Simulated assay, not measured.
Amino acid sequence: MGRAVVEALLERLTAMNVLLYASPGKEAFYEKFAFRRMKTAMARFVDVEKAMERGFVDSGSRGKDS
C-alpha cells in the first residue's frame, strides 16, 4: 500500500522538489523512488529525549540547553 501511495503522489508532483520525513530505518524504501538523504536538517521536538530514543535526532546535539 505504501508503494501505491508514494507512486500516486509523485505522479502528481513531477515538476516539484519533494521533501519528506522518513522514520529511522525506512530510508531505503524511499531511495527506491529516487529520494536522496539530505545533508542538513534541523528539528525541534517537545520531547527531545523520546526523539533521540527513536533515532530521529542525533544525541550529540542538544540545542541551547547543552
Rank of each mutant, 00 (worst) to 15 (best):
M1Y: 14
M1Q: 15
A4M: 07
A4N: 15
E7R: 07
E7K: 08
E7A: 11
E7W: 10
A8K: 14
A8Y: 10
A8F: 10
L9I: 03
L9R: 14
E11R: 12
E11T: 04
E11G: 05
R12E: 09
R12Q: 13
L13H: 12
L13A: 10
L13F: 06
T14W: 00
T14I: 07
T14N: 03
T14K: 14
A15E: 09
A15V: 05
A15S: 14
M16L: 05
M16Y: 15
M16H: 15
M16V: 06
N17V: 08
V18A: 00
L19V: 11
L19W: 15
L19F: 15
L20K: 09
L20H: 12
S23V: 13
S23P: 09
P24A: 08
K26G: 02
E27L: 01
A28M: 05
F29S: 00
F29H: 13
F29P: 00
F29G: 07
Y30K: 02
Y30C: 05
E31Q: 14
K32E: 02
K32L: 04
F35G: 04
F35Q: 01
F35K: 07
R37A: 06
R37E: 00
R37I: 02
R37F: 00
M38S: 10
M38D: 04
K39S: 07
K39H: 14
T40K: 15
T40V: 08
A41T: 11
A43M: 01
A43H: 11
R44Y: 14
R44D: 05
D47C: 12
D47R: 05
D47P: 05
E49H: 07
E49M: 06
K50E: 12
A51V: 03
A51T: 10
M52S: 09
M52A: 09
M52W: 10
E53Y: 05
R54Q: 14
G55L: 02
G55W: 06
G55Q: 00
G55R: 02
G55M: 08
G55S: 01
D58T: 07
D58F: 07
D58K: 03
S59Y: 02
S59M: 06
S59F: 01
G60T: 11
G60Q: 13
G60H: 14
G60V: 02
R62L: 11
R62E: 04
K64P: 11
D65N: 01
S66P: 06
S66M: 08
